[in-house]
Amino acid sequence: MQREGSALQGVGVVTLKEIADHFSSMLVVVLVVLVVGTAIAVVWGAVGELKELTAEDPFLFLRLFTRSGGLLPLAALLSFLVPLIAIGLGFDAVNGEHNRRTLSRVLSQPIYRDALLFGKFLAGLFVLAVTLLALWLMVIGLGLVSLGVPPNIEEIGRAMIVLVAAIAYAGVWLSVAMLFSIVFRSAATAALASLGLWLFMTILWPLFSSRVANAFSTANDVLGVLQTQQAFLRLSPSALFSEVMAVILDPSVRSTQQSMLAALGLVLLERGAIPNATIPLLESTLIVWPQIVGLMASTILLFVLGYVIFQRQEVRA
């Protein structure tokens, strides 16, 4: 059946209102301050470490993301904390409207349901992007001030890919949280389900995937086992994000090979084959392109799933 009018009518209005809501929401402000604060502390640690071993490292700036002076480095920290903000932004998107009994009133205005869902998603993504951009700029700024060396073009390029990947990664978790906010009528259930899935995917899945892989392949086919294992591991968005971080932030051939092989469960046997050679930015990008696209695709897939369920849902409270 053909619908009249645009499905996007009202998206802008909803998006602006949601952005305003997010920035005045105590929960979101606390989460953002927490994450940015932690990140700054970690980068501060990295700066301390870098000051001691500064030599002729061509990618000094990127070390800000991977070193930490004993703490969890920023790249790893992001894979933990970004989902937290994303879930905080999305867990009560739709069930909150139900519970406040505003849904039927808003939907009785001349807009489609699509506009409400799109608007909420765009607003969440916007807030995430702004937060991550602010974080990114602060890291660069802190690096400039404390290291006293400007980053070169390639470093900036790599850092930008990190930013894009982080936003894509955040999008996945925003979609997850919104999906649960559509499925579960209670906001607390949706929040706990999202956090549960996040913990499972980030901490338990890597352990789990090797077991599952073993069950699927025969023991004498070592490479086959490892490939199955990697395929399973990559079902977790955190694994995809970590792969992107590892390859982009450490451009040396060895570490790139190492991280790819490590993902396969192998170690680089021939040490120092091409000791100081680096992989150009384009090549690094091509290596992680599938992972980034994978993150974006899961975001869209999860959003569409939520969209379909929402369209079929009853409006009445």
Binding site: D21, R100, R101, T102, S104, R105, S108, A317
Partner: peptide, 11 residues
């Protein structure tokens, strides 16, 4: 439309 027990954004 005025729904049953209409809700508004409390904040």
């Amino acid at each position: 439309y005025l729904p049953d027990q209409v809700g508004f954004y409390d904040n």
